[in-house]
Amino acid sequence: MKSTSKDAVLIFSESLVPTVRKALCDPLEEVREAAAKTFEQLHATIGHQALDDILPTLLKQLADEDTAEFALDGLKQVMAVKSRSVLPYLVPKLTAPPVNTRVLAFLSAVAGDALTRHLGVILPALLSSLKGKLGTEEEAQELCSCQTVILSVEDEAGQRIIIEDLLEATRGADPGLRQAAITVLNAYFARTRLDYSAHIRTLLSGLIRLLNDSNAEVLSQSWDTINSITKKLDASSQLALIDDLHRDIRAVAADVKGQHLPGFCLPKKGVTCILSVLREGVLTGSPEQKEEAAKALGGVIRLTSPEALRPSVVNITGPLIRILGDRFAWTVKTALLETLTLLLAKVRLLRC
Rank of each mutant, 00 (worst) to 15 (best):
H48A: 11
D66V: 08
A169G: 05
H118D: 11
D53N: 01
D64Y: 01
C146F: 01
I54Q: 05
I54S: 02
C144W: 00
T136S: 14
L58N: 09
A109Q: 15
L75M: 09
G158H: 05
L123H: 05
E138Y: 01
D174G: 06
A105Y: 02
L51N: 00
C146N: 12
Q147R: 11
Q49K: 02
P92M: 13
P56M: 07
G120T: 05
E138D: 13
D165I: 00
D174A: 13
P175Y: 11
N100F: 05
A169F: 12
A80G: 11
N100C: 10
K60H: 13
H43T: 02
E142S: 10
P175M: 09
K60Q: 14
E168W: 09
H118F: 01
E154F: 15
T95R: 02
V86N: 04
F70N: 08
D73M: 10
L55A: 02
R102P: 03
E142R: 03
R84I: 00
L119R: 10
L107I: 09
A157C: 06
V149E: 15
L72Q: 09
A109K: 15
L127A: 10
L143C: 01
D52E: 08
A96W: 01
L151M: 14
P97G: 02
T116K: 12
L55M: 04
D64P: 01
G132R: 07
A157T: 15
R84K: 07
S129H: 14
P98I: 13
T148P: 06
I46C: 06
A140T: 07
A109S: 14
